[in-house]
């Protein structure tokens, strides 16, 4: 096996090389798609039909009980941002506490290890029973007036909860590990300088843990993306890219299924690229540590 470091400076690390290598398998998929079209099977739509859907993202699909492609994607991203954001917002402070305090760590450890392996998608029926069809709008404005707030009414609490579940554990565990890995000598230096606990947290513990937290966030985002697309297929959902994919399958409008799959894939890729960059930037200084 070739060591990854040996690849530095080779064509594989240049932008053109990256694009060529990265597009090899997607190109194979397109070839497979083309072969599928030539075979004449009904479930493989033509290139032109799918491109037609992608080229008109604001158009409401005729004969399909779904909103436009752009609205569906927006709803998915809003749910994702809310669930993931809540997950990070709770996991990071609790991770800091557990990383610093043995009492908090021992309090959380069994719960985290029991809950972590449970795939959040399998929780959805149970969570739907608990939360019902409550949405952000029904909580904020009451169930009677909820329908007036279209977007907020389609952000179901059950879905936000399972996204929170998907995001919380990877971020929590990486935060705990990040906090624990802070070198004692750095903390001692700050103490000798007379720094307060807040200064130590802000100037040492947080920046030292940030690469680990960023890594946890990247894993969590991948998990949330998977969970969300699966969750949008469940009954009670009225929008979202997963919902569009599923509905189009039921009505045999496969051009929408394919368009949704392409949007899911490309959006997932862009999100991962953004988080990979965040992770790299957060850990730019680690060359010295190695």
């Amino acid at each position: 096996m070739t060591d990854r470091n040996d690849q530095r400076g080779t064509w594989a690390d240049r932008p053109v090389g990256k694009i060529l290598l990265g597009s090899a398998f997607p190109a194979l998929l397109v070839v497979a798609w083309w072969l599928g079209i030539r075979s004449g099977t009904a479930v493989i739509p033509s290139f032109s039909a799918v491109i037609g859907v992608l080229a008109h993202p604001l158009e409401i699909p005729p004969d399909l009980y779904s909103r436009s492609l752009a609205f569906s994607l927006m709803m998915t991203l809003i749910r994702l941002a809310l669930g993931f954001g809540l997950g990070v917002a709770t996991a990071v402070p609790l991770g800091f506490l557990a990383g610093k305090s043995r009492v908090v760590d021992r309090l959380f450890y069994p719960l985290v290890q029991i809950a972590r392996p449970i795939n959040p998608v399998v929780l959805l029926p149970l969570v739907t029973v608990l939360f019902g069809l409550s949405s952000l709008a029904s909580v904020a404005f009451g169930p009677v007036d909820a329908w007036k707030y279209d977007v907020a009414d389609q952000v179901q609490l059950a879905m936000v909860f399972i996204l929170w579940w998907g995001a919380f554990f990877p971020v929590f565990l990486s935060t705990v590990h990040g906090v624990r890995s802070v070198r004692t000598s750095y903390l001692e230096t700050m103490r000798l300088l007379g720094a307060t606990d807040v200064q130590i947290l802000r100037r040492v513990v947080l920046p030292h843990s940030l690469p680990e937290i960023a890594h946890g966030m990247r894993i969590a985002m991948g998990m949330c993306w998977l969970v969300l697309i699966a969750a949008e297929i469940f009954p009670g959902t009225r929008s979202g890219i997963g919902y569009m994919l599923c509905t189009a399958c039921k009505t045999s409008d496969y051009q929408y299924t394919f368009a949704a799959m392409i949007v899911i894939g490309i959006t997932g890729l862009l999100i991962d690229v953004a988080f990979a960059r965040f992770e790299r930037n957060a850990g730019h200084w680690q060359a010295l540590e190695r």
Binding site: P207, W285, A287, L288, E289
Partner: peptide, 22 residues
């Protein structure tokens, strides 16, 4: 000490300024 004296995530000027900031 011999190693791990500076905070690697801070620029040199931030490292030197840290006691003043504190």
């Amino acid at each position: 000490t011999q190693r791990h004296t500076l905070f690697p995530w801070m620029r040199v000027c931030e490292n030197i300024a840290l006691p003043l900031e504190v």
